[in-house]
Design a protein around this nucleic acid. Structure first.
Lengths: 141, 141
DNA sequence: TATTGTTATACTCTATAACTATA
DNA sequence: TATAGTTATAGAGTATAACAATA
């Protein structure tokens, strides 16, 4: 039974409530392995795009260059990627996942998938796909 | 064309990207009238539930009692609601919207609806309703 | 001029603990 | 004991400006 409030007319209200709900579960799912959702996203970018630069990751994830530093420092301290100077452009550091980084990316992704299976238990596969599509229509260019 | 990344498998990733995208637009939509989305949500609760307490608003919106203080102080400074002592329970302050508060709640809601019409231009009415339903299945109890 | 990586800084929102006063 | 309202404080995430090095 949906409550009758002007907030329920607003997609943004539901978006925020659902996103906050998800975030709490995602943080809990990654907490046992000592990481967090954004850190996971950054590592995923490195694992899937060996040689990517931090500026490119920022463009992919929609974050500021200044703000990725802390997440890279975290991943670096865990030895999950290494930096290599680009021979053709001295400004650039290319990032490559280590073996441990590739394994961590897989493990962290699996933990988030398990969390989502629980979170989305009320939706069937078609609804889950439709939700992703509708959300993509909002934010994807 | 959807990019092929493990992040795209995650509903939470799309949720967060869409929510951040919406938030930027909602903040911009309310900026001309000097308010913000959470402040708007709190005022909406007061306008729709005259006599509501701050603790009740916190339960409705899913926030901590400590954190609503700043938003109420903001609304109070604008004269959009007034506090009344509850005769039967001295711990409680009941909150009532002023005339200006009722008008502001309507105006702010209209501004957000206009923002959402633009944000959701790729979705038809049925898709918009379906999106709200699917999001509700995630976060509503 | 523009881009990269980085530091410093401020701001928003959130989470927790503690306190008082009431019930 | 439990709840309401509040203060203080810390944390996560974000945004902006600035800088040196390089293109």
């Amino acid at each position: 039974m949906t409550e009758k409030t002007a907030l329920n007319d607003l997609v943004g209200y539901h978006l925020r409530r659902a996103s906050v709900f998800d975030l709490a579960g995602a943080v809990a799912a990654l907490e046992p392995v000592g990481t967090r959702p954004i850190t996971m996203s950054v590592l995923t970018c490195i694992a899937e795009n060996p040689g990517v630069t931090s500026a490119e990751i920022c463009r992919i994830l929609g974050m500021q260059r200044a703000n990725i530093v802390q997440f890279l420092a975290d991943l670096d301290a865990k030895g999950l990627f290494r930096r290599e100077a680009d021979p053709a452009d001295q400004r650039i550091q290319r990032l490559f996942p280590t073996e441990a980084g590739i394994a961590a990316a897989k493990d962290w992704h699996a933990r988030l998938m398990a969390h989502e299976d629980a979170m989305l238990h009320r939706l069937n596969a078609a609804e889950r796909a439709e939700l992703c599509r509708l959300l993509g229509e909002i934010w994807m260019p």
